[in-house]
Amino acid sequence: MGILSGNPQNEPMHYGEVFGVWTYLSGAKSLIAGYQTFINHAGDDDLRNFLQDSIQTKKQEITQVENLLKANGVGLPPAPPERPKADLESIPVGARFMDNEIATAVSRDISMGLVACSQIMGQSVREDIAAMFGQFHATKAQYGLRLLRIMKEKGWLVPPPLHMNAPELAYV
């Protein structure tokens, strides 16, 4: 039996785990405020519903991560205040985020979240932390697929140029 082979909750977190988990928590709290703002700007019902579901999922993640950090004596990052609800029509058209811009930004956030979860999983020594972020990763992958489908249905997806014909290579 090694020093880190017992109950994971009884093992200390190493500095990399603390930093990764704390940073993830800080980002998740900020994303909630951003998504609340996006809801105020979104005109599409499917996009608004997606954002609301994302916020609920992030709140559940935040609870789990805060409990982990508290149990390990780590101070929590501050959270931005909740955003008030606004009337879409009161936001001037030129100052409003467009639905396709919102979807693209959220798609980027999901991609970065997948990388963050993978990094935390890879550096974790504690199995419970790796498993928690594995769960978060799987959920993000599902949300990414859901958003991709919405973006395709709405015509918001702008793919990079398709590479149909590769040039022939000249051999010397």
Rank of each mutant, 00 (worst) to 15 (best):
Q56F: 09
H137K: 09
R96Q: 08
Q36K: 04
D109M: 10
R108C: 02
L76G: 03
D44Y: 04
S54A: 14
P8F: 09
G155F: 00
M112R: 15
N67T: 06
G113C: 14
A130D: 07
A130K: 08
M1G: 14
M151L: 03
L157M: 08
A130P: 03
I150H: 01
E61G: 06
L69I: 15
K140N: 05
L162H: 07
E82D: 15
H14I: 11
A71R: 05
H137Y: 14
A71M: 09
P12A: 15
I62N: 03
E89G: 12
P78W: 04
G2A: 11
E127K: 14
L68Y: 04
M1D: 04
N67S: 12
I91Q: 02
Y35T: 02
L114S: 06
Q135S: 03
S118A: 13
A79N: 09
P81Q: 05
M112F: 15
G122N: 03
I62Q: 10
P160K: 03
A86T: 06
G16K: 06
D45A: 12
A28T: 11
V106A: 04
P8L: 05
A138L: 08
E101D: 13
E101A: 15
S5Y: 14
E101I: 11
V21M: 09
A116P: 14
M112N: 15
G43L: 01
S54V: 02
L25T: 15
I32N: 04
M112D: 12
P81D: 04
R83D: 02
Y171L: 12
N100V: 09
L25W: 04
I3C: 06
L68I: 11
Q52T: 09
T57A: 09
L145C: 05
E168H: 10
F38I: 00
L169F: 08
Q123H: 06
S5M: 05
Q123I: 11
I3V: 14
N49Y: 03
K154N: 02
R126I: 11
P161H: 00
D109W: 08
A95V: 07
P80Y: 02
V125E: 13
A141R: 03
F50D: 00
F97Y: 12
Q142P: 02
M164H: 13
Q64Y: 10
K59Q: 13
Y171G: 08
L162G: 06
D53Y: 07
T104Q: 10
V74N: 07
G122R: 03
S54K: 07
P81Y: 04
Q123F: 06
T37I: 08
M13A: 11
A131M: 06
V125C: 08
G94A: 10
I91E: 00
D99P: 06
I110H: 01
Q142N: 14
P84Y: 10
V65S: 03
R96P: 00
V115H: 10
I32A: 07
D99H: 02
G134R: 01
L162D: 01
I32D: 00
G134C: 03
S30Y: 07
E89L: 12
K140W: 07
F19L: 12
E89M: 11
G113S: 12
L169S: 09
N165E: 04
A28F: 07
F19Y: 14
E61A: 08
T139Y: 02
E89V: 08
V115T: 15
P161R: 02
S54T: 13
M132G: 05
F97T: 10
W22M: 04
